[in-house]
Design a protein around this nucleic acid. Structure first.
Lengths: 257, 257
DNA sequence: GAGAGAATTCCGCAATCTGGAAATGTGCTT
DNA sequence: AAGCACATTTCCAGATTGCGGAATTCTCTC
């Protein structure tokens, strides 16, 4: 969907294709992949031959490819050391049980410079937002995005802010830079990101999750309509969310992450 | 550890390095990786720069690299569709509860042409074999290996048998080819692999697990000292193991695997 | 602050990659 | 069965990109 992207060089292109395969359908054709990736078929075919040899893809029935068992194996191996999603599940559930609001886990994707919704436990309330797994979250908006943005290295922050200003309008004027900086600073000060915007009727609280070397992995948070936000004891909710985030950070540091 | 392996070309080398990173330590140096992979440092460095750009690796504190968040993310995504290891866990536990013998889950790695122990639940008996996660299993021996080998395409079977004959001695003469073929045939006939060798005091029963397109993913099985094997009602055990294997196959087909 | 070891850059040669187009293969329809 | 449409695979010549030993720079350690 993005344009003006066409990595040069075999290694770059292989790395570039990997996510298309990992997140693509269980069966796909050469043409599909070439189109999705925006690369010439003959080039994709050459790379696919390499991946075939290394088990990253395999041939399916008829003329089709599928993600390879070696890829599966590697994925299991990586995840088996530390599975953030699995570790977080019961905690999300716990948050929903206690507060009756939707709990979300996001992981940060350094490449797309977005946070991706890795897991959700929905509120029992009938009024709730359509938060779905694998959804993308742009970092400068909302409690979830900002909980991540606040802890990114300065340079990356800059790039993201510039990029999302240039990006498509989101229905409201971009917040002023100074305002955003202040918000990020206060997130770092409190260790929890709060967001409350009655105009678009959304509110939330989120806490950052770090890896063993202090790099930000993602965040946990709860989101709700801003009207319901007012009914909660926000500070209690914030400390509950903060605790979950810290617990996950600790887990990530202990296990290999 | 293997020699005479040095993939030519950037794409091949990138694919070649991936598993070293995925299964390597949480922190590693350029030199480490270069040595483990048997490639010149400058080449590895060039590839690492590419991976860096794609988030497959990241810089750690000081001079070190670590597996990247993009790699984690992809792994989670792949695993979230269908996690054989997670699905199998309760079934392994169940087998151990019922039979008091060590239950094992293996996944087949097409590249190394071996099965890899993905999970184990140990028997409560004090006398048990040292079966450990991530351990490698050569296919021509044992119930586990053969449960996989029996369902591999003919060509791959040939390669594996030839390769392991040429390989290091394993303490006993290689079984005759005709004998092995007969064993594999009977495994296919029964749908379960039985192995019983009083000489080295080991026995086991294993069943194959298939993916959505009929490709073999791995196997589940129980292993034990051959003396204990005689005490069990082998047919009941075999049907229990077979059921677990079929259930996992069905799960793998329903979910995206 | 000096030294050891690691990571990074350099550079000329050439092997590997590139992509349009042609050839081959596969599955579906008549 | 035969033919058709579409997807995959091969081909090719030009040149971009990869290659790796050696020199340089950087970073921890003592």
């Amino acid at each position: 969907m993005r344009m003006a992207e066409a990595p040069k060089g075999a290694a770059e292109r292989l790395a570039y294709l990997l996510p298309f395969i990992a997140s693509g359908p269980a069966r796909f054709g050469l043409g599909d992949l070439a189109e999705r990736a925006g690369l010439p078929q003959s080039s994709v075919h050459r790379l696919l031959k390499v991946m075939l040899r290394f088990g990253l893809v395999e041939r399916g029935t008829g003329q089709s490819y599928r993600p390879g068992r070696e890829l599966q194996r590697m994925a299991s191996q990586i995840v088996s050391r530390f599975d953030l999603v699995r570790s977080a599940r019961p905690m999300l559930q716990q948050l929903v049980d206690s507060w009756q609001e939707t709990a979300v886990l996001c992981t940060y994707s350094p490449v797309s410079r977005k946070a991706i919704i890795a897991d959700v436990v929905h509120t029992p309330h009938p009024l709730r937002y359509a938060v779905e797994r694998d959804g993308e979250i742009t970092l400068p908006w909302g409690s979830l995005g900002r909980a991540v943005l606040a802890y990114l290295p300065r340079g990356e922050q800059e790039a993201i802010i510039r990029q999302s200003n240039a990006g498509p309008l989101t229905g409201r004027p971009r917040s002023k830079r100074a305002e955003l900086d202040a918000a990020l600073e206060s997130i770092r000060a409190e260790g929890v990101s709060r967001y409350y915007d009655p105009q678009i009727d959304i509110a939330g609280i989120a806490g950052p999750i770090f890896g063993p070397e202090g790099e930000i992995l993602g965040c946990v948070g709860v989101t709700m309509p801003s009207r319901r936000y007012q009914l909660h004891l926000a500070d209690d909710l914030a400390s509950a969310v903060g605790k979950v985030a810290r617990d996950l950070t600790e887990l990530a540091s202990m296990q290999g992450a």
